[in-house]
């Protein structure tokens, strides 16, 4: 296991794309968060807005970059046939996937911590300028939103790793992951029945998972914050298990 972990870490570290994608997670998250806050003022009916959700809006773009990085960790090997070398070096295939999951989690936790901290710092003066309520880290809800967003991005990356392991093709995997994330909110908007809307919101990995950012009107949420993140975790674990089962059973 230690050999597999060191090996996957060396692979990730020596892939030139890794550092740029990690920077992109940070930049995309901070930029979209700042733009979202800059574009919201109290005068235009923003007074009732949830400042934590608003200041962390960029997570919705950052997650796509995190997913791409995770997909490429295994999709890049399938694309070149290098997965066969990996599997001759580490024939216990479950160990390979676990090692990949660990190193992906490690770099995504680091990048998303930077992305969330950057978003909160960048949006602080903008919230004040636009007359919106400030975020205080003394407040339990804001801490939950911040820590939860880091966990959210990490779980999305793991979901993407599982999907890519199952479909064995980078482009198809990225399409499938983005589809899975954005399909539920789009469907929820499309249906008119409120009961179905709440149901879809509770079920979707993105809509349920992002409730972790909520600090206001908690009783009106379709699903409680930690429960919502739990729904995403179930998706991620499910995709990893499915990918792992296929990896173990299929010919390489």
């Amino acid at each position: 296991m230690i050999g597999a972990l060191r090996s996957e870490w060396t692979k990730l570290r020596t892939s030139p794309g890794t550092i740029w994608l990690l920077l992109a997670v940070v930049v995309a998250t901070v930029a979209v968060s700042a733009a979202a806050v800059a574009g919201t003022t109290c005068r235009w009916g923003g007074c009732d807005v949830d400042p934590a959700r608003l200041a962390l809006t960029g997570v919705q773009l950052g997650q796509a970059v995190a997913a791409i990085l995770a997909v490429l960790v295994i999709g890049g090997e399938y694309g070149t046939g290098m997965h066969r070398i990996t599997l001759t070096a580490v024939p216990r295939r479950g160990v390979v996937l676990v090692a990949k999951a660990v190193v992906v989690s490690a770099v995504i936790v680091a990048a998303s911590a930077a992305a969330v901290a950057g978003s909160l710092l960048a949006t602080r003066p903008l919230l004040r300028r636009n007359g919106l309520p400030a975020l205080s880290m003394d407040d339990g809800g804001a801490v939950r939103a911040a820590v939860g967003s880091v966990l959210y991005l990490t779980l999305v990356a793991l979901l993407a790793l599982g999907v890519a392991t199952a479909v064995r093709h980078s482009a198809a995997a990225i399409g499938a992951v983005l589809g899975l994330l954005y399909l539920f909110p789009i469907m929820a908007q499309a249906v008119s029945d409120e009961k179905w809307q709440r149901y879809l919101t509770k079920l979707g990995p993105m809509t349920a998972g992002l409730t972790i950012q909520a600090t206001k009107h908690l009783t009106e949420l379709p699903i409680a914050p930690w429960k919502g993140l739990g729904v995403l975790a179930v998706w991620s674990v499910g995709c990893l298990l499915a990918g792992g089962a296929l990896l173990v059973r299929r010919d390489a």
Binding site: T14, T80, I85
Partner: peptide, 12 residues
């Protein structure tokens, strides 16, 4: 073993 010499990530 050597199965396919092309099986490596080109940017590494």
């Amino acid at each position: 073993s050597l199965l396919d010499a092309g099986a490596l990530q080109p940017s590494r």
